[in-house]
Write a protein that binds this DNA or RNA. Structure first.
Lengths: 194, 194
DNA sequence: CCACTGTTTCAGAATGTTTTGAAGAAAATA
DNA sequence: TATTTTCTTCAAAACATTCTGAAACAGTGG
C-alpha cells in the first residue's frame, strides 16, 4: 500500500522533473534533485535507483552532475561505506546557485558575442566594406539595446541577492500595501501592451 | 564576398540559437528570432529559408510558433501578396512577453502541484494513513518554502515591470553609487554562503 | 593478494526531438 | 472556374539526447 506521503512525494518529483526539461536540465536530473529536496534524510545511490526506477549508471552520472552544479552534497554516515547525498534545502541559496551557473554558462557567452559583433561592424581600419550604413546603424543599435538590458538585469540580480528574501518581500509589500496604507508614489508606466 | 555586417549578423544569430537550446526553445526558432531581431526590415518566409538554410516547412512552423509566443508580428507590404515578419525590437517588452509565457507554462503548474501535494499530505479525513509525522512535517515545510519563494519572485517580477527599465537602472545605481555619493542605507545581509 | 563493497565509465539501445519534402489547403487573380 | 502563388501540415527520415547494463576501477579489511 502506498501512503499519502509517498504519493504526494512522487507527484512532486514528477512535476519537478517535467519542469527540468524546460530548463535545459535533463528530466532525470531534476527528478533526483526533487527527490532529495523532499527527503528528510540523505539518500544513497541505491535509494535513488529504487525510487526512481533508473539504472545505476544513470543515477551515478546525474548525482555527479548535481554535485558539480552545487545543488547537492555528498555526506557520509558513520560506520557506513556508502556515499549519501543531501540537497541544499535553503531555497534562496538554491536560487543563487542556479542563477550564477546559468549566467556563467548562458549570459556571458552572449555578452562576449555581442561585443565581438559590434567591433566587427564598427571596424575602423581601411576598407569601409560597402555595408549599407543604415542597416549597420540599426544592427548596432539593437545589439546595444540588448547589451544594456543584460547589464541592467545583472545588476538587478546582484541587488536582489544583496537584500535577500526579506528585502524582496519588503519591496513587494511596498507595492501592494496592506489596507489603510497609502502606497509610496511610483512612476506608473503602464506595464506593457500585453 | 561576405561583408562584415553579414558576418557579424550570422555570428550573433548562431550564438542566440545556441542559447535558445538552454531555454527550452528550439535552436532554429531562436535563430529565426535573432535574424528578425537584427534585420532592419521585415523578412518573408523565403528570406528566412535562404539565410538560415532551412526547409519551407521548418520555417513555417517556427515562424508560427514565434507569432504565438508574441515575439514577432506578421506584417504586409503594400502590393505584395507575401507575408512578412518583424520582431518586437523593444527588448524590455520582449522580456515581459517571454517571462509571462514562461510563468504561465512553467511556474503555474508547479504551483498547482505544490498545493495539491500539501493537501494530500494534510488530508484531514478519517484514515490517518500511517506516515511518519516527522517526515510529513519536513515535507510540508520544504514545499511551503518553495511556495513562498515562488510567490516572492512573482511579486518581484511584477514590481520590476512596474518600475520599468529606468526604475531598475535607478535601483542598481543606488547600490553601486557614483564616486562621492553615499549609498542609501540597505539591510546588508551577507549574500549567502558561497 | 584476495574478496568484498561501492563507484565510474562507456558502447550500444532506447527514446525524444527536429527537419525535410511533398501533398494539399487557402487566397488572390484572371 | 482555372491558374498561380503562398502558406500549412504531417509522415518519414535524420539527428540528438538519455539510459542501460556490464565491465573496469578504487578503496578496505582479512
Amino acid at each position: 500500500m502506498t501512503s499519502r506521503l509517498q504519493l504526494a512525494r512522487s507527484l512532486f518529483v514528477r512535476r519537478w522533473g517535467e519542469m527540468g526539461g524546460y530548463w535545459g536540465i535533463s528530466r532525470t536530473m531534476a527528478e533526483i534533485h526533487a527527490l532529495l529536496f523532499v527527503s528528510a534524510r540523505p539518500l544513497c545511490t541505491d535509494d535513488v535507483m529504487d525510487q526512481l526506477k533508473i539504472s545505476r549508471g544513470n543515477a551515478s552520472m546525474n548525482l555527479r552532475a548535481l554535485v558539480d552544479w552545487g545543488l547537492i552534497d555528498r555526506v557520509h554516515q558513520l560506520g557506513d561505506r556508502k556515499e549519501y547525498f543531501r540537497a541544499d534545502t535553503d531555497v534562496w541559496h538554491m536560487f543563487e546557485t542556479i542563477m550564477r551557473q546559468r549566467r556563467r554558462r548562458e549570459v556571458e557567452p552572449v555578452f562576449a558575442t555581442l561585443e565581438r559583433c559590434c567591433e566587427m561592424v564598427r571596424a575602423p581600419q581601411g576598407a569601409p566594406g560597402g555595408d549599407d550604413p543604415h542597416e549597420a546603424a540599426e544592427f548596432l543599435q539593437r545589439l546595444d539595446d540588448l547589451r544594456r538590458f543584460l547589464t541592467s538585469m545583472g545588476r538587478l540580480f546582484e541587488l536582489v541577492l544583496l537584500v535577500g528574501p526579506k528585502g524582496v518581500e519588503g519591496l513587494a509589500a511596498a507595492m501592494t500595501p496592506p489596507p489603510g496604507t497609502r502606497p509610496r508614489r511610483t512612476r506608473t508606466r503602464a506595464a506593457g501592451r500585453p
